[in-house]
């Protein structure tokens, strides 16, 4: 029973990892904290819901086009709105992105209304019995998709020239300028990638949770906790933090009460900040 919950938490945590990766990548490269992170992924949840409701698309299929659209939107948002703020003080960036967050939340409220929107797939109640474990099919598929996408992202940053160029710009901005990397474009691509990850994570979460406007700030906060626990700017750290928080939430929900799960996550955050301020896989600066 408890082990079942650990597995459930682990699977949810893989989706959290993808979600947090979006925040981590953007911060790691351009030192901008995306305060509209959770709100953006709620928009993706609604997009998945609308695709399922009106086009009959399974979220596992609408995942790709929605992530692609989110990439484009993130790219344009960076070029048009965020780039002028990159070298401005932190509080200005903060206000800009909080405004974006408010616009998105209220926009969702306006378009979709305050009630929860859930997706019903026909395999919603299927489950697999593996040994003594009982695993939801939906959760397993969503987690598998999240893990695949995370792996692809990590490979992109490790093996492609653009991925390496983005890491180089994060490592030494002046150095990147010196050898003629187009920093503005790399930043826009990075924001696009971060937005695509949070979008994909939002679509996958829509399989497990109902979309509701007020979920945005919760997801933003959850992602902050994960990224700090895993290590700011570390991509594998985001994944590890996601899994850890996922498991901790699931255990808190079973052993105590579901409503206490956030308290557990924050307790974990405080512990990490006390004992290992750079996060699990972060590097000391």
């Amino acid at each position: 029973m408890i082990l079942d919950q650990v597995v459930t938490g682990l699977l949810t945590g893989l989706i959290y990892g993808l979600l947090a990766l979006g925040l981590s990548v953007i911060f790691g490269v351009m030192r901008i904290v995306n305060f509209a992170h959770g709100e953006m992924s709620v928009v993706a949840m609604y997009a998945a819901w609308a695709a399922a409701r009106y086009l009959g698309l399974d979220p596992l299929l609408s995942l790709i086009p929605i992530a692609a659209i989110f990439f484009g939107a993130g790219y344009l948002l960076q070029r048009g709105l965020i780039q002028p703020f990159v070298s401005r003080p932190d509080y200005m960036q903060f206000i800009l992105l909080i405004s974006v967050a408010l616009i998105l939340t209220n926009g969702a409220l306006l378009v979709f209304g305050p009630e929860a929107r859930g997706i019903q797939v026909d395999y919603a109640f299927d489950s697999y019995e593996i040994g003594t474990f009982l695993i939801d099919k939906v959760r397993l598929l969503a987690a598998g998709a999240a893990l695949t996408l995370t792996g692809l992202l990590l490979a992109f940053f490790r093996f492609t020239l653009t991925g390496k160029a983005i890491r180089a710009a994060a490592d030494n901005r002046t150095g990147a300028q010196v050898i003629g990397l187009d920093i503005g474009k790399l930043y826009a691509v990075t924001f696009g990638i971060g937005t695509a990850s949070l979008g994909a994570a939002g679509v996958l979460m829509a399989l497990l949770n109902d979309a509701i406007p007020r979920l945005g700030p919760e997801l933003t906060l959850l992602s902050f906790v994960i990224v700090i626990v895993g290590g700011l700017g570390s991509m594998t750290g985001a994944l590890a933090g996601g899994v850890l928080i996922g498991v901790s939430e699931a255990l808190a929900g079973t052993l105590l009460q579901p409503s206490l799960k956030s308290m557990f996550s924050f307790a974990l955050l405080v512990l990490i900040l006390l004992l290992r301020p750079q996060g699990l896989l972060g590097e000391r600066s």
């Binding site: 020239l161 390496k164 160029a165 890491r167 180089a168 490592d171 030494n172 002046t174 150095g175 990147a176 010196v178 050898i179 003629g180 990397l181």
Partner: peptide, 25 residues
């Protein structure tokens, strides 16, 4: 081209990636 003051290499990337990025133009 430029060889900048303070070298301005990418310290956390491998030597090979540093070089490869020089040819990204």
């Amino acid at each position: 081209g430029q060889v900048a003051e303070g070298r301005q290499i990418f310290p956390s990337l491998p030597v090979l990636d540093n070089l490869e990025l020089g040819a990204a133009l």
